[in-house]
Simulated assay, not measured.
Amino acid sequence: MADDGIQRTKTGIPLPGPEKLTRPEWALNENSFLKEMDSVPLFMNSLPEDAADNPLIQALQDLAYDGTPEEVAENFKNQGNDCFKKGKNFYKDALVYYTNGLDVFCKDAKLNETLYVNRAACNLHFGNYRKVLTDCAQALKLNSKNVKALFRSAKALYALEMYPEAIDCCEHALLIEPDNQPVITEMAKIKEEFDRKEKIKREKEERERKIREKKMKIEAALEKRKIRTAATPGFKPDHPHEIQLDEDLDQLTVPTFFLYPEHNESDLIQAFNEQDTIGEQLSEIFYEPAPWDPEHKYRPETVQTYFETEDNGGNIGLLKVGLNVKFLTVLTHSKHVLRDGLARFIVVPKEDSQWKKDWLAKYGK
Rank of each mutant, 00 (worst) to 15 (best):
K236F: 09
R228S: 15
Y287C: 10
R202H: 11
E274M: 03
P289R: 02
D246V: 02
P261C: 03
Y287E: 13
I269S: 00
D293V: 10
E205P: 04
A230S: 15
T277I: 03
D195G: 06
K236Q: 13
K217H: 12
E242M: 02
K199N: 11
H241M: 07
K217S: 10
R225T: 09
L249W: 02
P294D: 07
E265P: 10
E288A: 07
L259Y: 06
F235G: 00
P240H: 07
A271C: 07
H241I: 05
K215P: 10
E247C: 04
H239A: 02
E265A: 14
T253F: 00
N264D: 11
K297T: 13
E284A: 12
T253A: 02
D293C: 08
K210P: 03
D276K: 01
H241W: 13
E206T: 12
P294I: 06
F235E: 08
R196T: 12
K297E: 14
F272R: 06
N273P: 03
E223K: 15
E198V: 10
L282E: 03
E242P: 03
E295I: 05
N273T: 08
K215C: 05
E213A: 14
E242Q: 01
K214S: 15
Y260N: 09
D195A: 13
Q244C: 10
I278P: 02
P291I: 08
K224Q: 14
N273D: 01
P240S: 11
K204W: 05
E295Y: 12
I227F: 01
K214C: 07
T277Y: 01
P255Y: 04
A221F: 02
F235W: 06
L282C: 06
A271E: 04
K215N: 14
I218E: 09
Q270M: 11
I243P: 06
K214T: 15
R202I: 07
N264T: 07
R207E: 12
P255W: 00
K224T: 15
E213G: 11
Q275T: 10
A221Q: 00
R202E: 12
D267K: 11
M216H: 11
I211S: 12
A221W: 01
K215H: 14
L249E: 12
A231S: 15
S283M: 06
F194Y: 14
P240K: 03
D195E: 14
Q251G: 01
S283I: 11
A230W: 02
K226E: 15
P294V: 10
L245I: 05
D267Y: 01
L259Q: 05
E265G: 08
D246Q: 04
I269W: 00
T253D: 00
E284D: 14
Q270F: 02
A290T: 00
P291Q: 09
P261T: 09
K217C: 07
K236L: 13
E206R: 14
K214Y: 07
H241C: 04
I227S: 03
K197E: 14
E198M: 13
D267N: 10
N273Q: 04
K204L: 09
I285W: 01
D238V: 07
Q275D: 06
P255I: 00
P289D: 02
E265Q: 12
P294R: 01
